[in-house]
Simulated scan of single mutants.
Amino acid sequence: MKTILHKANTRGHANHGWLNSYHTFSFANYYNPERVHFGALRVLNDDTIDGGTGFGTHPHDNMEIISIPLSGALEHKDSMGNTAVIESGEVQVMSAGTGIFHSEYNKNKDIPGKFLQIWVFPNKKNVTPRYDQISIRDLEKENDFFQILSPNPEEPGVWVHQQAWFSLGNFTADTKATYQLHSENSGLYVFVLKGKAEVAGNELSDRDGLGIWETTAVEFNVEKNTQLLLMEVPMNLN
């Protein structure tokens, strides 16, 4: 087993006034040659957007883009004709493929919105762009991990053009848990949304990240009132 630890206070940071963003991996003006990506996981941005503000229309291509709202409501519009609002308890996915334009704004005028923006390298280029969002409330399990993303449209959660699986865990009690990786070629990136957990000999707390690879399973000792996001991705980019 190999690991790489990214403590919360080592992330890149950009405060634009309307946007306060923390970057686990190199993004925009933040560049760290040792933190460009973790396997197919390219971007993990922890964003807070002021009320009534947001990202104007901008392009993407050949990337799988996942948004996970943590609080508030985010209004999405894109060049495919989609207009939607996503809130905590939902997940949004876009396959940018041959190219899309979209905008994202805080739907609320008076309160900030918080969300994770995640980019995953696809295993197919120039696919037809698509958009989807789902509620994950019916998938939730207490004190265990539950899947919110996979490569298969038939599995629970949203799907992407990559051999990737994302899971969330909401722990209301001290818990021991195990995550089984789907492939020996995968790595697991653990991101602590809140709380504390001991993972692979590392003590993790709010917004810490830990990459783990060359293993088939990962053991967790999780304290109560902890929320974890697990992102399993291929470690080799072909």
Rank of each mutant, 00 (worst) to 15 (best):
P59W: 10
T57E: 07
Y31N: 14
N45L: 06
S79C: 06
T48K: 09
M80R: 15
F55A: 02
S79R: 05
L70W: 04
G52C: 05
E64V: 01
N62V: 10
G39K: 02
P33S: 05
M80V: 09
A73Y: 10
D46Q: 08
N29E: 15
I49C: 00
I66P: 00
R42H: 07
R35P: 04
T48F: 12
T24R: 06
Y22H: 14
N20Y: 03
F25N: 06
D78T: 12
K77Q: 13
A40K: 06
E75Q: 15
L70A: 01
G81K: 11
A40W: 04
G56F: 14
D46F: 02
F38S: 02
D78C: 06
L19S: 04
K77M: 11
Y22F: 12
H37T: 13
I68R: 03
D78Y: 12
I65P: 00
V43W: 01
A28H: 05
G39R: 04
F27K: 01
I66E: 01
H60F: 08
T57A: 14
G54P: 05
H76P: 12
N45K: 06
Y22T: 09
N62P: 15
F27L: 08
D47Y: 12
G56I: 06
G81Y: 10
M80L: 15
F27N: 01
N62H: 12
H58V: 12
S67L: 08
V36I: 14
E64R: 05
